[in-house]
Nucleic acid binder design. Structure first.
Lengths: 337, 337
DNA sequence: TTCTGAAATGTAACCATTTACATAAAAAAC
DNA sequence: GTTTTTTATGTAAATGGTTACATTTCAGAA
């Protein structure tokens, strides 16, 4: 069943059938109806591959994501997919982990699938060594590249992000203002955004002329899902004599681990330990007490990103960077002024 | 840059280039090298659309999921995508919510994209009214349909699932054996699998000749992410005079709400309230105490499902149903024998 | 009625592959 | 050194759309 069959049965040419299907140029209402009736009767669906070949596009967007089972990235993928769907696009999803070769491979495979654009979800796509980011600019030479929560300067790369630096700066200042100075900064990702948060933390101390205790900057190497592991890690720090009265974590999972740590030590929250997480995810509500967290308006970020994506594909000129502010959502693990 | 350009530069025919690219029939090593060198030099990538048109396949699988931001479904999508990727397939992801029209629409759009198979992630795809499931059998008439955690009898539909009935039966029996009879069954989905769990719960009582208190079967209508809402809901039940000493929840989010409820009432866990969740997700570890939960071996389920998918596409005869057993993972919210 | 221009429709080229079949080259058999 | 068989390669016809351009149709003007 192809366009020829339809054209024969409707007694028109294939061009007319095609026009009816695409609503491109004008077709006489009577003809349109005749064609639509035949299409309906036959249950005909145009062949997407042939259409793709002719138009050089199948309206599909490649979504790259280190790990779509991550509670935060999953939400991002969800919002992005939803917005693209609304816009009439298909999403080809590829999880690629955190290693460069896999990321490169994933990009190449998506480009080979002839996606219209590439969306990189999460800051893990930017490598510390600038030369390693060639894979991004190479991709951008072929299709628009959209990055969520990453900051990368390159033509045809569009970044939509939360100002992690500012958000962390403000959260740290809020803790300092409430009189807590021994704040543990706990992070689990050396990604771009993890480091921006770290500098926000540091900037807060600098702005107050308070020296930074390097022991209070700790990197957690364990699995991203191992909350008991985070708890153990903090207990080990404590055993090493490192003391702190607040934990500022680069994500909610680490914050949840900190809450568990407080429980294991019999510390009251927030009096003896304040905890601030990042992303304001479901985990903040699951934990008891509910965790204060920095919300980065993920839904807005994603809808904006997709808007830019689609507009760019339609040939509109779009801003290369779109930056939103984070927002500290106070819950029960802090007692800030 | 197309196959003709390559064939010209390599001094061979396009058929030979095609054969080199596909490794189909034999090509003289010398010729192969010559062609590969030209391909390499030109950075040529075959046009996936033309390939799709010729082969009537772009090696892509449609993944349908009610909501890929759901902590459990996201993991399923992750495992499925990973296995498909390993097998050389692309994933077209479409979230479609829980309503029939959207599900139908999503299926049709994926079929219009000419996917090789359709994977439905989660039990939400089966409608209560059998007639409404025609959209599944219609789809199965075109491509293999694989269902995760759903049980549907239809040619060309392959189901991979956990025996929710048995798992819930065993969990309920374990509670009964430890002397708790007023067990609240709390669920938030009238999906297929939600109802199977319910019947497991009921069967446990029946097998022990204990009457079932209908007040202890409660449906939570709120959002799937609203843990405080679950807590409020349970408090309302308490206010209505409904008492219980255990909560068996159809997922971990509800169980986390139950733990919050115990806190709000000052009940000790597990002495005054036992809690059992479902899925053994990250939430079980985030909650304090960690929640006893039924693990349904999602990773195994998914890898099996994809294996069946790929084998079926390769023309192998595969079993229509694959059933695994769940496993009760004891943590700190129960004190079972 | 004829002319003019716009609207509707048709023709045919093009998109870039795969592959059945034909043919040429090489290897094996005689 | 032929003939036969096997292996390697080429030719050309699909695959099923889109669309530039050519042609027809038709309404309104002269």
């Amino acid at each position: 069943m192809n366009i020829y069959d339809i054209s024969k049965q409707a007694g028109v040419s294939i061009a007319t059938v095609s026009r009816v299907l695409n609503g491109s140029s004008s077709v006489k209402p009577k003809t349109r109806k005749k064609v639509l009736d035949v299409i309906e009767k036959c249950g005909y669906t145009p062949n997407a591959f042939a259409r793709g070949l002719g138009l050089d596009s199948m309206n599909s967007i490649g979504i790259l994501c280190a790990d779509c089972s991550d509670i935060y990235l999953a939400k991002a993928v969800y919002y992005i997919e939803g917005n693209l769907r609304e816009g009439g696009y298909n999403c080809i999803l590829r999880c690629c982990g955190y290693d460069l070769p896999n990321k490169q491979r994933a990009v190449n495979l998506l480009l080979a699938q002839r996606v219209d654009a590439l969306i990189m979800v999460g800051s893990s796509f930017i490598e510390a060594n600038p030369e390693d980011n060639k894979y991004i600019s190479d991709a951008a030479a072929q299709v628009p590249v959209l990055m969520l929560n990453a900051d990368f300067d390159c033509p045809n790369v569009f970044c939509t992000m939360c100002d992690d630096f500012k958000a962390t700066l403000e959260a740290t200042l809020a803790l300092l203002h409430s009189g807590i100075e021994d704040i543990l900064y706990l992070y689990n990702s050396r990604s771009h955004s993890g480091l921006k948060k770290l500098s926000g933390y540091q900037a807060a101390f600098t702005s107050k002329d308070i020296p930074i205790n390097k022991q209070l900057i700790q990197f957690y190497q364990g699995s991203r899902e191992d909350i008991p592991g985070v708890c153990r890690f903090l207990n080990e720090l404590k055993d090493q004599g490192i003391t702190f009265h607040a934990v500022l974590a680069s994500d909610d999972m680490l914050a949840a681990g900190a809450v568990k740590y407080a429980k294991s030590q019999g510390l009251t929250i927030p009096d003896e330990l304040s905890v601030i997480g990042f992303n304001n995810s479901l985990l903040t509500e699951c934990s008891e007490p509910a965790i204060t967290s920095i919300d980065n308006h993920l839904e807005t970020l994603c809808s904006q990103l997709v808007k830019i994506c689609i507009s760019t594909l339609n040939g509109e000129e779009m801003p290369q960077k779109t930056i939103f502010s984070g927002e500290l959502i106070q819950k029960a693990t802090t007692n800030l002024k």
